[in-house]
Structure formats: C-alpha cells, structure tokens
Design a protein around this nucleic acid. Structure first.
Lengths: 122, 122
DNA sequence: AAGCCATACAATTATATCGCTATATAGCAA
DNA sequence: TTGCTATATAGCGATATAATTGTATGGCTT
C-alpha cells in the first residue's frame, strides 16, 4: 500500500532536500558493501602488495577456491580489481587507487580507537 | 614448484603471511558494513550538515521511524554517530571525523566513474 | 496523576549473503 | 583426441539483514 503519512497532519510535507541523490547513495553503498567482508579485505590487502593469481589468493584467503572466486567477482564488479588471463591462470590486481586511501583512513582510525580503548585486536 | 597442493588441511603448509591480522580486518569490515546501506548513508549525509533529532532524520530518510531508529543504533555502535538526550528528543551528530574523508573519497571516485562512463546517476 | 509525544525495542517476514560441494569451462600438454 | 590444471559457476543450507507492525519506555505538560 502507498505510504501513508504517519503523523496526522503532515500530508503536505515536500520531500526533504537531498544533498546527494538516492542513486548516488546507492552506488556508494554498493561500493562500501564490497568492502564489508573480511575475506574480501584480505584479498585486497594481499593485492596491495602486488598482482597475484587466483591460486595465490586462495592460499592467502584461507577459504575455499569457489568462495574466493565469488568474492573476486564481487570486487571486480565493484570496479576495485581488474583481472587478466595469463595462460592457465587469472591474474588479479587492484584497479581502484582509492582503495589505498580508504585503507589508510580505516587503519588510522582503527589505531586511534585501539590506543584509546586499550586492546581489542592483537 | 614441487608443491603438493593439499586443499585445506595440509599439515605442513604454514599460514600465509598476513600484513593485517584477521581481527583488524574484521573490525574494518564491520565499519564498512555500517556504511553499506543507502538509508544509513542518507542519515550520515544529513548529519554532515549539522545535528538533527530523530524526527528530522526520519523525514530525511524517507522510511519508517522504527527503521531509522535501528539504523541509528547501528551507526552509533560503529562509533560513527553520537547521541544525546535533549528533552523529548534525541539529538544525533557525527562522532567520527573520518566519515568526511570517506565521503570525499567516494564522491570523488563516483564522479570520476561518471565522467568516464557517461551517465549513471542524474 | 493522566495523556501525549518522541523514541526505542520486539517479533515477523522476506530477501540477501556466505561457505560448501559438485560440476562446468578454459587452456595447455602429451 | 585425452587428460590435467586453474578458474568459474550452480545449487543448497544456514545465517544475517532490512522493512514493517505493534508495543513499550522516557519525558514533558497539564
């Protein structure tokens, strides 16, 4: 059913001003979602040291090959990595330089919280 | 490479080197996950313009009050916003300054892709 | 106190996601 | 061709997440 105004006298409320359009937020959310998985972060972290093929990434990720393959396709679709075929193997590399900045910010923040609260990782 | 690739329980394979410990990746993933929802991004985007109470955020978010309340609690638990009680209302504000940097990076990247590929948002 | 307002919490349902196993494809080698 | 290796894809079960509805709590005001 159509959305009904929840408070009794607000039927004329115009849509609030949006600094960012919904479509932009959806795209940004999708990008963040690609980064919201420990396995995918491990893959990116590994790739930040240089190109790797899928087998190497499977070893680094510590989970099954099929799983890694799916995670890689998610990262690829989000534009964060690029792949190329080389003989039998698929070589993966970071395609989005902003990954480095995001990592920097997150790690900095993490350290800040760490020193602030005591231990939490180890 | 005379390596016998034993799938997961090869007893001699040492764990691969990890630049970041799993616990750190899990925490970073959790932070990214808090940012991976359009409604939550809308809330943050609204708060970036200044403090708001929950009712105002409900209007801005375009979804139900209960839903907004839950999203706010997620953002709060992730340390991204802080709340204080003021009379009847709960005032929310950005608590994590790195939000601004993340937004900046994402928006920049989004624009880059936009000009690169043509239209996609509007 | 009663009643209202702003917000939080609980229960439900629908959908999405993760990891697994099994299977399918692509490319090379013999 | 057959066979082997590296990777991708499909299907399944379990868990997680989001939106909704209803209810409960906290704090005014009278």
């Amino acid at each position: 059913m159509p959305k009904k105004s929840q408070s009794k006298h607000s039927r004329t409320a115009p849509p609030p001003e949006k600094s960012l359009p919904d479509a932009a937020l959806a795209m940004i959310a999708e990008r963040f979602r690609a980064l919201s998985e420990p396995v995918r972060l491990r893959l990116l972290s590994t790739l930040m040291a240089g190109e790797r093929n899928v087998t190497q990434l499977v070893e680094a990720a510590g989970t099954g090959q099929a799983n890694v393959s799916k995670h890689l396709s998610i990262l690829k679709q989000a534009g964060m990595i690029a792949t190329r075929r080389e003989g039998l193997s698929t070589i993966c590399a970071i395609a989005d330089p902003s990954i480095y900045q995001l990592c920097e910010i997150m790690c900095t923040r993490l350290k800040a919280e760490h020193t602030e609260r005591g231990k939490a990782l180890e």
